[in-house]
Write a protein that binds this DNA or RNA. Structure first.
Lengths: 336, 336
DNA sequence: TTGTAAGCGTTATCAA
DNA sequence: TTGATAACGCTTACAA
């Protein structure tokens, strides 16, 4: 079924069928009905490729994401897809992994599919080595690039993020004030937002003139979801002489490792040992006591990101950067 | 940049450029090099829409999924996307929610985008009311439909699934044999696989001639990820007089609710109370003791599904149904 | 080995 | 209000 078939059966030209299809007003109601009836009868659907060729868009947005099975990124992808579809856009998902070459390749792939924009989900698409971010420049020349949880200043690149620095600063501070001030910082990502969180922690520690140890900042390099291994990592640290009485983690999964560690050491939570996670995920209510965690307002971020994108695609001037604040959700692993 | 521009600059016809682009062998190496150089120099990328129009495919597969932020479905989507891309196919993701009308709409949307196939992730796309499955018939007329974890007999519909019945049968049986034979079955889905699991449980209970109570099968209708609410649900059951000393859950999240319940009641695990979850997710290692759970080999399923799909798209005869076995992963919440 | 030209199914411009 | 026709950028049969 093509527009020709329909035009023939309805006894009009293809131009008229096209007008009906696109809600053009300059069609006599009677003609319109006749065409609609034929379309209905034969179950005709316009060919999206032909339309794409003519209009140079198929209303699809590329979503780039290191690992959509990650609890946090999966939620982000979910929200973004929802909001996009509400605006009549479809999503092409591409999971890139954490390797830079693979990210580049995926981005090129999306661009070659002629998406209207690329959304990069998660700050791991921005490296702290400037030359590794060049691939974004080229892409931004072609379509607007939307970053979730990253900050990157370049024309046609738009950022929507949570102030991870402040959130982590406050989380650390509140821990210090509670008395458990030997705060270990546990992280597993050197991404833009990863480093922001880290410096929020540092600032809080330094502000309070605490004996600030380099060894308090611990980078976990093992498998992301291996909670046992995370607990092992902390156990080794403690056994090798590092003394700490609380943990701030850059991620709820890492915090779960700290939970496991504290259980092994039979530390009472939150009296002797406190833990704060990040992302406020499902995991917070899986452990006992439930985990205090930072909520970085993912849904709000995603909603705003899509709003900004829609504005850009409509040719409106939109803010290059939108920043929200995080919020500490207090539960049982902290005593305040 | 179009194929015309390239052909002009290289001093050949567009047909030759096209041949070079598509790796056609009938091109003189020297000509080929000349064209390649021009393509390289001007950074030309073929227009995917035009190609799509001519070939009637853009090598995209539609992925339908009720909720890609769900721990289990997110993993499935992730694996499928990976395997598809390894085969040079892209994925259009559509999260439908659990409402039938919305599922239909999403399916139509994908078909109107002219995807080469639609993969339905999760058994909730098959209802136990036959008339609700009719929308799949129409779709199967147009493109192959691939079901993950569902069973549906219809031409051009291919199923890849885990034998949930058997897995649940064995899990229940092992629990019975361990002595904790007042087994409560906790579930939250009436989907195809949901009902299979349920009947696996029933069969095991009946086989052992246990005093089989209808009230042992409990359907939880609250929020999916609200573990507190799940624990409340169980607490109410117990307080209203139902006596049970173990729980088999259709999902790890539900099992987490059972964990929380047992903590409230101060039941010793696994001596007084045993729990088995399903999906073998990250959650299994978040609680103490870690959760025994059924692994339904998701990665294997996804891999097989994509293999089958590639076969179908290549015109090969492929099996309509491929079934794998699940495996019980024993951890701390069971005493065997 | 290469070129010409038809076809894919739309949208949109211009005439009528 | 409608119709004829060019364009969109590619693939491919057929001709040379």
């Amino acid at each position: 079924m093509t527009i020709y078939d329909i035009s023939e059966k309805a006894g009009v030209s293809i131009a008229t069928v096209s007008r009906v299809l696109n809600g053009n007003t300059n069609v006599k109601p009677k003609t319109k009905k006749r065409v609609m009836d034929v379309i209905e009868e034969y179950g005709y659907t316009p060919n999206a490729f032909a339309r794409g060729l003519g209009l140079n868009t198929m209303n699809t947005i590329g979503i780039l994401c290191a690992d959509s099975s990650d609890l946090y990124l999966a939620k982000a992808v979910y929200f973004i897809e929802q909001f996009l579809r509400e605006n009549d856009y479809n999503s092409i998902l591409c999971c890139t992994g954490y390797d830079i070459e693979s990210k580049k390749a995926s981005l090129d792939l999306l661009l070659s599919k002629r998406v209207d924009s690329v959304i990069m989900v998660g700050s791991n698409f921005i490296s702290n080595q400037p030359e590794e971010n060049k691939y974004i420049h080229d892409a931004a020349q072609q379509v607007p690039i939307m970053l979730l949880n990253a900050d990157f200043d370049y024309p046609n690149v738009y950022c929507t993020l949570c102030d991870d620095y402040k959130a982590m600063f406050e989380a650390t501070q509140i821990l210090i004030n509670s008395g458990l001030d030997k705060v270990l910082y546990l992280y597993n990502s050197q991404s833009y937002s990863g480093l922001k969180k880290l410096s929020g922690y540092q600032a809080a520690m330094l502000q309070d003139n605490l004996e600030f140890k380099r060894e308090y900042m611990q980078f976990y390099q093992g498998e992301r979801e291996n909670i046992e291994a995370i607990a092992d990592f902390l156990t080794e640290l403690a056994d090798s002489g590092l003394s700490f009485n609380s943990v701030v983690a850059s991620d709820d999964i890492l915090a779960m490792g700290a939970m496991k560690y504290s259980r092994r050491k039979k530390l009472r939570i939150p009296e002797e040992f406190a833990i704060i996670g990040y992302n406020n995920s499902l995991l917070t209510s899986c452990c006992e006591p439930p985990l205090t965690s930072v909520d970085n307002r993912l849904q709000t971020l995603c909603n705003q990101l899509v709003k900004t994108l829609m504005g850009v695609l409509s040719g409106n001037e939109m803010p290059q950067k939108v920043i929200f604040s995080g919020e500490l959700i207090k539960r049982g692993t902290t005593n305040f």
